[in-house]
């Protein structure tokens, strides 16, 4: 229920998708929160292009797997009766692209998922993206960690 007393958490959030299991979780979370203030949601998926290819190589646009990441996010949002605007990017570095996109979109929230990694004994690989975003993002950042699955907890 919208509560006018409560402060607005965000008006426009960038939801960073990584194609993993955490995508659906963060989209659902974002939609749930955004609904209270009719905030806008932007789903951003960044495809990292290695240096062997030009940055504008025709890669992400043709990959069904890449498209599916955004399609699934849209679908998840629709399941929650909310709209999410999908953005697909190619960049050399995911973190930098996310920060730049959030800046350009004038987002006041950046939401990232941190999936639990089952391989290598199971842990949370923070990687380089999340630290970069935490350090450089122009807005508030939410990192949503997955719960540790039962059997390995």
């Amino acid at each position: 229920m919208p509560n006018p007393e409560q402060t607005v958490v965000f008006r426009r959030a960038v939801v960073a998708l990584n194609g993993g299991s955490s995508d659906a979780r963060i989209v659902r979370l974002a939609a749930g929160v955004a609904r209270q203030w009719k905030a806008e949601l932007v789903a951003v998926h960044v495809v990292e292009i290695d240096w062997t290819q030009p940055l504008d190589a025709d890669i992400a646009g043709r990959s069904e797997d890449v498209q599916r990441v955004l399609d699934l996010a849209e679908e998840t949002a629709e399941d929650c009766q909310y709209k999410i605007e999908p953005v697909l990017l190619q960049a050399r570095d995911v973190g930098a692209a996310l920060v730049d996109e959030a800046t350009e979109q004038r987002a006041d929230m950046l939401i990232l998922g941190l999936p639990y990694r089952k391989r290598f004994g199971g842990d949370f690989a923070i990687g380089s993206t999340i630290p970069y975003v935490l350090k450089n993002a122009p807005c508030a950042v939410w990192v949503v960690r997955e719960p540790i699955p039962e059997e390995s907890a």
């Binding site: 504008d56 025709d58 646009g61 069904e64 399609d71 679908e75 730049d100």
Partner: peptide, 29 residues
């Protein structure tokens, strides 16, 4: 070809926004 180059805040940061022609009609499920 549906790709829009964009500059970032840092000097060398670049990204390319990709238009998704299928998105208007289909969803890859």
């Amino acid at each position: 070809g549906g790709r829009r180059p964009l500059k970032g805040r840092k000097l060398a940061d670049r990204r390319v926004r990709i238009e998704r022609p299928h998105a208007a009609y289909f969803r890859w499920s």
